[in-house]
Design a protein around this nucleic acid. Structure first.
Lengths: 344, 344
DNA sequence: GTCCACTTTGCAAGCGCTTGCAAAGCGGGC
DNA sequence: GCCCGCTTTGCAAGCGCTTGCAAAGTGGAC
C-alpha cells in the first residue's frame, strides 16, 4: 500500500501547457474539442501533446466530471457460446467507436451484482450493457433514477423505461415448430430453457401457438425442462424417449441443448435425422460445426451486441433521448438435423 | 459535455464519516484495512458504510494513489476459442480474488496497442495480462521500466525480465508426432501455425525433433503453413493431398486447423481415422464436440489464465518479486481421429 | 477614436480519495 | 502520580483533470 502509483510517470496536462506556453485549461479544452480555441493555439498545443506523448489520465478526467470512454458489460459468465457471440459483436462495434470495454461477470453471486453496478455507475464507465437473464429490476431501477445510460440485452420483461435489444423469441419458437409440422411431424417434443427466464418462456409459447395453429394438442408429457446447457438437453431427450409414444421431432430451446439431445439420441441408437428430427435455437458456431449440422433458429447474436452498443452510445451522448426497445428478427437456418416424418 | 457525472449520487467517504462520527481519514483507513484502528470504531464505521450503501469511488481512489482493483487484459481479438478459454480461466480466478477485468482487444491495429497500454498503465488497472503473439517488445520495455506489473501469456521470446506463462509447445509437438509414429505412420504431414509466432515455430521444432529421433527424414513438402484458423487447415490438407505420396497422418498445430483438415478430408472421400489420422493441438471445446472426436495435445488454457492471474497479483502486491517464467505441461488426449497405419 | 459583442484564455475550485505528519489517548512501570 | 512509548485519530496536501466565471483580446460599426 505504500507503493506510489506508476501513473506519476507520464506527462500531465501541466507539462503540455508549459511546453506550449498556454494555461492548463486551454490544454484541457483542446483535449476535449472545445470549439472556441484559436487555430494556431490548437496546433501548438497538439504539437506539444504529440511531442511529449501525452495521454490523458482517465481517472482524473472521469473524477472531474468528464467521460471515461469505457463502457461496462455485465454478464452471467462466459460459459456459453451464446454469450461469447454477443460479446464479440459488442467488442467489435466498441472498438470502432473508440471505447473500451470493461467486462464483469457476476457468476451467479446475486449479491455482488448490485455493488458492481453501483461502482461502475459511479463513473468507472459511461454506460452499461447488461446481459443477465433475471431479477435485475432492483438496480435497473437505480440506474434509471440516476439517469445512467444502460441497455438490456436479451432480457424479457423489462419495463418500458429501459433500453433493450432482443430477438423475436416467440416468433422463432413458432417458426421452429411450424417447420417440424410442415415436415409431417405430429408428435413434437420441446426441451425448454429455464422458464423463469423470459425468452425461454416465449419460445415455449411460440411452440404452443404453432401446435394450436395446426390443430395439434399440447401434450405436457412432451415438454421437458432444461437449463439451456448441453447436459440438460441430453437428460431431457432420455426422458422423452421413455415415453410410450416418443416424439418423432424435437424443438430444443437452445443449440447447446439440441447438441446434447443429438448425443443422447445417438447413444440410444437413433439416427438423426432419419429416426428423429431435432431443431435448435441460437445458431451458435458449434451448431454448424457439429457432426450432424444442426437446423436451427438463428438469433443475430453479434448483431444484437452491435446494436446494443450503438443504442447505448447514442444515449450516452444524448441523455434525454427516449428509451427504445429493439427486436431483431430470428431466421430459420436449414441444415441436416431434420427430415420429413416417416411412419413407423 | 455539460452533463454532470452521475457519480454525484452515492454517499462519499465524508458522508460515512459524518454518520459514524469520525474523520474521513479514519473511514479511508478502515476501507483499506489499515491495522491500527480501534475495533469499536471499525465496527461503527462499517455499520455506517453498510447502512449508507457506501461504495468506494474507484477513480478517486486510484487517482489518489490507491489501487483500482482492476486488471487489464490485452488480447488480439475474441475470434478463436483458444482465447476464449484463456479468458475464462482469467475471469474465473479474478472473480474469486475480487478484482475486475478490463478487456481490450487490439484488432490487429498495431498502432493502438501502445496508447492503450500507456493509458491503462496510468492507473486504470493495477496490472496487465497480455496475450498477443508478437512484437510487443516496445511497450513491454516501457512497462518494465515503469515497474508496472504485467504477465505475458503464451508468448515465446520474451526476455527474462518479463513474467510469462506458457505451455510446453515443443514437447507437445514432439509428443504428437511420436504418437503418430508409434501408430506406425511414416509419412506424417504437418500443418503449422504462422511461424513468426513463437509457439508455432516451437511446435514445428517438436515435430522435426520427433522425426529425427525416429530416424525419419524431414520432408519439406509435407510441411504446409497455416495461420491457426480453420480455413487454413482446410486449404493445407488439400495441398497435402495433391502430393504424389500423400501423408497417412497429419499433425495440425491447432485444433481449429485440424477440424478444417478433417472437413477437407471428408470432402475428398477419406475416412477419419481409417484412411487418414489427424492430431490437433490445444484441446478447445470443439475438439471433443466434433463429429470425429479429435485426438489432440491439450494445452491447459484455462489453467494458464488462472496461473497468470495469480502471478500478476503476487507481483502487484509485492512489486519487488523477481519475475518468473512458468511453463505448463501439455498432455496427449486420445480420441477417435487417429488409427494405426494400414499399408495401402 | 470609442464602444460593444464576440472570441479566446486564465484562474480557482472541486471531483473523492490516500497518506505523511502530528496531535491526542491510553496503559504500564516506576 | 508522572512519564514514556505505543496505539488511534485528525488535518492538510495533493493525485490530474473539468468547467464556471471573469479577464483579456479582437474587430467592426459608428
Amino acid at each position: 500500500m505504500t507503493r506510489k502509483k506508476a501513473g506519476g510517470h507520464g506527462p500531465t496536462i501541466f507539462d503540455v501547457a508549459r511546453a506550449a506556453g498556454v494555461s492548463y485549461s486551454t490544454v484541457s479544452r483542446i483535449a476535449n474539442n472545445y470549439e472556441f480555441v484559436k487555430p494556431t493555439t490548437r496546433e501548438r498545443v497538439e504539437a506539444a501533446m504529440r511531442e511529449l506523448g501525452y495521454v490523458a489520465n482517465v481517472q482524473a478526467r472521469s473524477l472531474a466530471g468528464g467521460r471515461s470512454q469505457v463502457i461496462g458489460l455485465l454478464v452471467y459468465d462466459l460459459a456459453s457460446s451464446y454469450l461469447v457471440e454477443i460479446v464479440r459483436g459488442i467488442d467489435d462495434e466498441l472498438s470502432q467507436l473508440d471505447y473500451d470495454l470493461m467486462l464483469s461477470t457476476t457468476h451467479r453471486r446475486k449479491h455482488k451484482e448490485a455493488s458492481v453496478v453501483s461502482r461502475l455507475a459511479q463513473g468507472v464507465v459511461d454506460g452499461l450493457l447488461i446481459v443477465l437473464p433475471r431479477n435485475l429490476e432492483a438496480y435497473v431501477a437505480d440506474l434509471s433514477q440516476q439517469h445512467f445510460p444502460y441497455v438490456l440485452i436479451d432480457y424479457t420483461g423489462g419495463d418500458r423505461a429501459s433500453n433493450a435489444v432482443r430477438a423475436t423469441n416467440r416468433v422463432g419458437g413458432q417458426a421452429a415448430t411450424d417447420y417440424l409440422v410442415g415436415l409431417g411431424h405430429r408428435r413434437i417434443g420441446c426441451i425448454t430453457g429455464p422458464l423463469s427466464v423470459g425468452c425461454a418462456q416465449e419460445r415455449l409459447d411460440g411452440y404452443a401457438a404453432a401446435l394450436q395453429a395446426h390443430g395439434l394438442a399440447y401434450d405436457p408429457a412432451l415438454v421437458v425442462d432444461g437449463d439451456f446447457l448441453e447436459p440438460s438437453g441430453h437428460t431431457a431427450l432420455r426422458t422423452l424417449l421413455t415415453l410410450d409414444q416418443p416424439p418423432t421431432a424435437i424443438f430444443a430451446s437452445s443449440d447447446s441443448m439440441a447438441i446434447g439431445a443429438i448425443r443422447a439420441a445417438a447413444e440410444a441408437g437413433l439416427r438423426i435425422p432419419a429416426d428423429l428430427s431435432i431443431i435448435g435455437f441460437d445458431d451458435i458456431p458449434e451448431a454448424a460445426a457439429d457432426a450432424v449440422a444442426l437446423t436451427t433458429i438463428r438469433q443475430p447474436l453479434q448483431e444484437m451486441g452491435r446494436i446494443a452498443v450503438r443504442l447505448l452510445i447514442e444515449h450516452i451522448e444524448n441523455p434525454d433521448l427516449p428509451s427504445s426497445h429493439i427486436e431483431l428478427p430470428t431466421r430459420l437456418i436449414e441444415r441436416n438435423s431434420c427430415a420429413p416424418y416417416r411412419a413407423g
